[in-house]
């Protein structure tokens, strides 16, 4: 953001406006931070229920929730939380790899080549992104049932790929669009075939874009809840979101365990999100507007 120009707008505004602006921002910030502070407080306060007081300051500090969360052992003596974390990592990683691997070439084709049906393909990828995954959940459930892929992490990766591939195609196309034409022209004149151009010149150039897309894809799969809950039956296979939700289920609610788990699960992706968020808005609005 550039410094405000010295001529306009630096006159001190009316005090009423200043108060209103600071008040609005402060109220909004307080409303934003309050639930977060509550969760942090609950993670460190003993007891399975939220405390009666509404203040965000913990009255008593304990690490028992973290110990219980991270130290819980499953039926075979294995560390349960580690198992769930590994499940989440495996699923998110596999989804990202599938998404990127399948989407790279298609995104490049949609960006650089002109062929009949290109506009239809572009619209299709955009439209598929917009529609809720929950609509496809039932047919996917029936299909995976027939293939005996229910209650398996492989099946879950397939389900996630349904949304990951269109997202990767669309986002990568945006990056490929921004690559300098001259470089590619020069390579073509030099006699390189399109495949060679793609693998030796385009891909290395687009590495930052691919990395960003991969990270967003990973985050989306990491944070996904409802499909994992529906497609996985065996508690031992649960990914982290399902584990968190089941700790505050209908019949036994341990909010302390939930709060500790929420912190451990979401702090890494929140940090990642902060690093990446400026890429996200640009891609979304640019893509939607240009169509």
């Amino acid at each position: 953001m550039t410094a405000p120009s010295p001529r306009a707008g630096t006159r001190r505004p009316r005090p009423l406006l200043m108060i209103a602006v600071y008040a609005a921002l402060s109220v909004a910030t307080a409303a934003v931070l309050y639930p977060v502070l509550l969760v942090i407080k609950k993670a460190f306060e003993p007891g399975r229920q939220f405390a009666l007081s509404a203040s965000p300051v913990p009255e008593d500090v304990t690490l028992e929730h973290f110990r219980g969360l991270l130290g819980q052992r499953g039926a075979g003596g294995e560390l349960a939380f580690l198992q769930h974390a590994l499940a989440s990592v495996a699923v998110a990683l596999a989804t990202t790899l599938v998404g990127i691997a399948l989407a790279c070439t298609a995104a490049y084709a949609l960006s650089r080549f002109r062929f009949p049906g290109r506009r239809t393909a572009l619209t299709t990828f955009l439209v598929v992104q917009m529609f809720p995954a929950s609509l496809l959940m039932l047919p996917l459930y029936v299909l995976l049932d027939q293939l005996h892929l229910l209650n398996s992490l492989t099946g879950l990766v397939l389900v996630y790929s349904t949304t990951a591939i269109p997202f990767c195609v669309w986002t990568l196309k945006g990056y490929f669009d921004g690559l300098p034409r001259e470089l590619l022209e020069a390579a073509r004149v030099d006699g390189a075939g399109p495949a060679r151009i793609f693998f030796t010149i385009v891909l290395p150039l687009a590495r930052p874009g691919i990395a960003v897309t991969a990270l967003f894809s990973f985050m989306t799969a990491w944070n996904e809840f409802i499909m994992a809950s529906t497609f996985l039956t065996d508690e031992g296979k649960y990914t982290l979101p399902v584990l968190l939700q089941s700790s505050v289920g209908q019949f036994s609610a341990d909010w302390g365990r939930f709060a500790a788990g929420a912190l451990v699960t979401s702090v890494p992706v929140m940090v990642l999100f902060y690093v990446l968020q400026k890429y996200l808005v640009g891609g979304l609005t640019a893509g939607a507007v240009k169509g």
């Binding site: 910030t29 931070l33 509550l38 939220f50 979101p241 968190l244 902060y274 968020q277």
Partner: peptide, 30 residues
Amino acid sequence: FRVLLIVPWAIPNYITALIWKGMFQGEYGA
């Protein structure tokens, strides 16, 4: 301000939903 106001977007939305469910609880909710 800008950094803090984006916090809700950064939190996974199922965690947000569960936190608010806890906050709206009848007897013990914030």
